[in-house]
Design a protein around this nucleic acid. Structure first.
Lengths: 136, 136
DNA sequence: TAATAAGATTGTAATCATTACATGTTTGTA
DNA sequence: TACAAACATGTAATGATTACAATCTTATTA
């Protein structure tokens, strides 16, 4: 179910977002590096290929892709934001020791909130913390 | 099930955390203002009563209380952190229009992650976004 | 094809929440 | 009272993010 370039190109076209070289490379990076990278990591990772790439462009691109629903910002208590290609909803687990963020599958529809009947829910996030097997 | 001062004093004593005037007032504020305040809000709210209170003290106190498990930082994509007295686990819903954060009850144990059997889970967060009844 | 306008990218400078640090104050104990 | 440890305070530094102005690219139209 991982999106391919073609999937994403289609979605961008459908939303009238032009696909510049920089945007393409940022998307490529996100698809190939499913480690929930920070802006810094994207910047460093693309620097060899696009030495002129600016962080502002990365921020702009991520904002546009997020508004288009193709990318999600992962919210942790860290001050550096992390980004994830938006696929089916899944949970995130952050190891408090090594900082790695793991995906885990979860049936989000099974979460039935008690008293949100008059609210419109647009986004659901599940975020666990603890220790990963390697750090135990 | 809301904790009282006495509950909290007991817990602090049990953890060997001394209860200064400032810490007491910050706790008092958190107990009386269940609106998930920011540091700025705590600072402004206590300024009349303690004009000399410093933001550093608020940050320090919140960190100590969080380490003691009495306070939880709420993680949203906002850059300003919000704080909550740690009660039974509940979900948070942020209205994308007015920014208000609502609590909602949820049976967190009913969330069964698929593949975290070898992980130690220490904390679970549920964070929904959308529109609240008033903004609809 | 050339002219033009709209949209993208870039780099620098500003913003702002948070943290580090040094100094001054309070508290408990002998 | 004297002392030491813990605490509070204010200022300065940090660092991620955003604002902004200038430059470059792309698409469109005549």
């Amino acid at each position: 179910m991982k999106p391919t370039f073609e999937d994403i190109k289609q979605q961008l076209k459908a939303k009238n977002i032009s696909l510049s070289y920089q945007r393409l490379k940022i998307l490529e990076y996100l698809i190939e590096n499913r480690c929930h990278p920070t802006v810094e990591m994207i910047f460093a990772g693309l620097h060899d290929e696009i030495p002129t790439l600016s962080k502002t462009t990365i921020y702009n691109t991520l904002r546009i892709l997020e508004e288009a629903g193709l990318v999600k910002e992962i919210t942790t208590e860290d001050k550096e934001a992390r980004y994830d290609i938006a696929t089916e909803t899944h949970g995130h687990f952050k190891c408090e020791s090594c900082g790695t963020i793991f995906d885990f599958s979860v049936d989000i529809d099974s979460i039935i909130p008690g008293d949100l009947s008059r609210f419109v829910i647009k986004d659901k996030n599940i975020y666990f913390k603890g220790l990963c097997p390697r750090c135990l």
